[in-house]
Simulated assay, not measured.
Amino acid sequence: MAAIEPGSDLERYIGSVIRELRARQGLTIADVAKLTGISKGMLSKIENAQTAMSLDTLSRLSKALGVSLSALFRNYDVPEGSAQLVKKGEGMEVVRRGTRRGHTYHLLAYDQGPEKRFEPFLISMDDAAEVFPTFQHPGTEFIYMLEGIIEYRHGNYTYRLEPGDALTFRGDVPHGPESLLQLPILFLSMIVYGEHD
């Protein structure tokens, strides 16, 4: 029967998971020994990665601890990951064409690759007298309204956007704010660029 070799990374990982589950449930090694029919000495060796385990042993342990067999392996060999966190108010303020007093763009993620794949912005506007240029860019843009009411133009159409509304459109068609109907205005804008050739 297949066994996990003693002293391996997997053996150490499984041993620590079993010890943690047992402790979380307030069970002693003697309690688990009684539930599984595995000796206390063997259980101690399993928790300390000092002995090989069969799949049958693992199955008995998982049942005694009230978890599925797969749950024992859930976090094993998971890629470390690398996320980018931008805390509230810490998005980099950027100047975009048409940015003026009362109209700010905060970039919420900084693309770290050689090619820009997306740009998420938090955009705020609080000057109703402002006149906006039209924008055109590659990719698809998604807008999600958070606060205020705006009339937004895309090509020949205008859309009234209120909190909770979303608008998605091609970026290469002229677009931009037409009228600021209720201030202040706050919305998320995500530009997703297509595959590069």
Score class of each variant (00 low, 15 high):
P114L: 12
Y110C: 11
G7Y: 06
A30P: 04
T57H: 09
Y13G: 06
L72G: 06
L61Y: 00
H196E: 11
Y193Q: 13
L55W: 07
N48T: 15
P174N: 12
T28G: 05
L55G: 03
L43M: 10
G155S: 01
A83P: 02
A129P: 02
T57M: 14
L108K: 10
L27H: 07
E195D: 05
M92N: 03
E90H: 11
L85M: 14
R117A: 13
Y110Q: 14
I18M: 07
S16G: 03
A71C: 05
R74D: 10
T134P: 05
F142K: 03
F132P: 05
K45Y: 00
M1W: 06
G89H: 08
V131Q: 15
L43G: 00
R60Y: 05
R160A: 07
A71L: 00
L108R: 11
L188A: 11
A83E: 10
L27N: 01
E178W: 13
G176K: 08
K116S: 13
S59K: 11
R97T: 09
S68F: 06
L107S: 10
Q25K: 11
I185N: 00
D165L: 07
M92S: 12
P79G: 03
F132Y: 15
I149P: 02
G171R: 08
M1N: 04
F121L: 15
L85F: 14
K45P: 00
I29P: 06
L188T: 01
E147Q: 15
E119A: 02
E119Y: 03
S82M: 12
E80L: 13
T134N: 02
M125C: 11
P177G: 11
F169E: 05
T28H: 05
L180M: 15
E119F: 00
D77W: 07
P120C: 08
S8E: 10
V67I: 09
L107R: 13
L188G: 06
M125R: 03
F73P: 05
G155I: 02
P79C: 08
S54P: 09
P114R: 14
L122V: 06
D126T: 11
H103Q: 12
S70C: 00
L107D: 13
P120G: 02
G171Y: 10
R19D: 10
K88I: 11
N48S: 15
T99Y: 00
P79L: 08
S39I: 05
Y110T: 14
L167G: 07
G41E: 04
T57C: 12
D127N: 14
N156K: 13
L10Q: 07
F135H: 12
G91E: 00
E162S: 15
H137C: 07
E20S: 15
V131P: 02
V131I: 15
P184K: 04
G171L: 02
